[in-house]
């Protein structure tokens, strides 16, 4: 059914600084699906997530992306966010002087304003923060810390999933969320992602390794190589890659 489609990418070519990285991507993501993108370094995995989130440095040279029937490429990063797209950054950015509380208050209220809702009252906001912090096992002093400043690798990624829980996206994109995580942090992150998933939502998991995919089980696996999807299959593809490597496909 056409109205099941959350994301439709057609003939996408994109790059950065005049260098073409994605060379013709076609993809459909439906409600309830978890798609994994695997591939060697330089395959274009992070370019794909950056283009989806609307990172200004990237240029789309041809093709189209439709998100829930809307022209995604005509939307600013903040419009994409309030429309339900969330990207968990591979390298979350430090913002000295801005506390998690103030950062999230700005974000949550921007989402509410865009939906014509009133801003959250201070008490309700703190309650929501507390609930979602517990969800990724963050201690309460976390809310007073400056965004990502002095965070360990695991804390940064848990902070990403915390933000995802706060914003409750329709389409979440996890860009190499497993990199630099120990097993405990990986489990917290994966449990969070799984708990947030519903039949109405979809996820894109971008990863170099199969490790994360032991915890978050994908429905569809794509292998990206030199800017193209060279193979698409079910979850069995993950093991095949693990055994034979990307060259063995």
């Amino acid at each position: 059914m056409a109205n099941d489609i959350i994301l439709k990418i057609s003939g996408l070519h994109a790059g950065i600084e005049g260098k073409e990285i994605l060379r013709g991507i076609d993809l459909e993501i439906r409600k309830g699906e978890i798609h994994a993108f695997m591939g060697p370094n330089g395959a274009g995995k992070s370019t794909l997530s950056s283009v989806l989130a609307g990172k200004p440095q990237y240029t789309v040279t041809s093709g189209s992306i439709e998100y829930m029937g809307r022209d995604l490429l005509a939307m600013s990063p903040e419009e994409r966010s309030v429309a339900g797209i969330f990207m968990s950054f591979q390298y979350p950015v430090e913002i000295p002087g801005v506390t998690i509380t103030n950062f999230m208050k700005s974000a949550v209220n921007a989402h509410r304003r865009a939906k014509g809702q009133e801003e959250l009252k201070a008490g309700d906001f703190l309650k929501l923060m507390k609930e979602k912090m517990a969800f990724v096992q963050m201690k309460s002093e976390f809310s007073k810390r400056e965004v990502n400043v002095g965070f360990s690798g695991g804390e940064k990624k848990r902070n990403e999933i915390f933000q995802m829980a706060m914003l409750d996206p329709v389409l979440s994109i996890l860009d190499e969320t497993d990199s630099g995580l120990d097993v405990d942090a990986l489990r917290i992150v994966a449990n969070g992602v799984n708990a947030l998933h519903t039949p109405e939502k979809a996820s894109i998991i971008i990863t170099h390794y199969q490790r994360l995919l032991e915890y978050i089980v994908p429905d569809i696996v794509h292998v990206l190589k030199e800017g193209r999807i060279v193979k698409t299959g079910g979850r069995e593809l993950v093991n095949l890659i693990e055994e034979n490597g990307y060259d063995g496909l």
Partner: peptide, 22 residues
């Protein structure tokens, strides 16, 4: 940092504001 904030739905002007205050 601007992109990070905007990707969370924070409008561009607000992201600029937050960064200057910070």
């Amino acid at each position: 940092a601007q992109f990070y904030m905007r990707s969370r739905g924070i409008p561009e002007a607000e992201a600029r504001f937050l960064q200057m205050v910070s």
